[in-house]
């Protein structure tokens, strides 16, 4: 996009190029900054404050959170999150009843699809929430998972 901006110096192109330069220069920090505080937090409220600040959080039906209703083994619970929301820049998986609720954060780029799968540990039955971060709003969807054997403490 920057190269195009230089080749076709119309005002709109120029502004687009400028915006992309600003976005790109901010990218390494976004990609590298690990929110250690959010991962060490023991309260859901702290996790949300660290990750999202003051951005509004709304429920969305455009997020697919695929996770079993009943997990027989809390040490290995498969989770898949995908979304069609435009401008999704990060996916956060939060397990509310775990000692540290924030499990994983995935930072997307324009080259990756907002569709990830992984396996998590769950200490006990809990709400599991997927948060999708866009520049202006946080979208979320939740599912309750019952755990019959816990995954913490071996």
């Amino acid at each position: 996009m920057q190269i195009q901006a230089i080749r076709q110096p119309s005002r709109r192109r120029f502004i687009q190029g400028l915006m992309s330069i600003i976005a790109l220069s901010a990218l390494p920090f976004q990609l590298l900054a690990r929110s250690t505080k959010a991962f060490q937090a023991t309260k859901l409220e702290t996790v949300k404050a660290e990750l999202f600040g003051d951005l509004p959080i709304v429920d969305s039906s455009d997020i697919s959170l695929d996770i079993p209703d009943i997990a027989e083994n809390g040490a290995v619970v498969p989770v898949s999150v995908s979304t069609t929301i435009e401008g999704a820049e990060a996916i956060h998986v939060v397990i509310e009843q775990n000692p540290n609720p924030l499990s994983a954060s995935f930072k997307l780029t324009e080259f990756s699809v907002a569709d990830i799968s992984m396996r998590v540990k769950m200490g006990k039955s809990s709400m599991v929430t997927a948060y999708i971060k866009t520049p202006t709003t946080i979208y979320k969807t939740s599912r309750e998972v019952k755990v019959t054997i816990g995954g913490c403490g071996g």
Partner: peptide, 30 residues
């Protein structure tokens, strides 16, 4: 960190609650 032809396309930060011997799937455009 996930790279496609040398470009970083996705990064993930994990906590301790990711399962042992982690499985992870993602998708790359173009």
């Amino acid at each position: 960190t996930c790279e496609h032809n040398g470009n970083v396309v996705l990064t993930a930060d994990w906590g301790t609650s990711v399962s042992k011997n982690p499985y992870f799937a993602f998708k790359v455009k173009s």
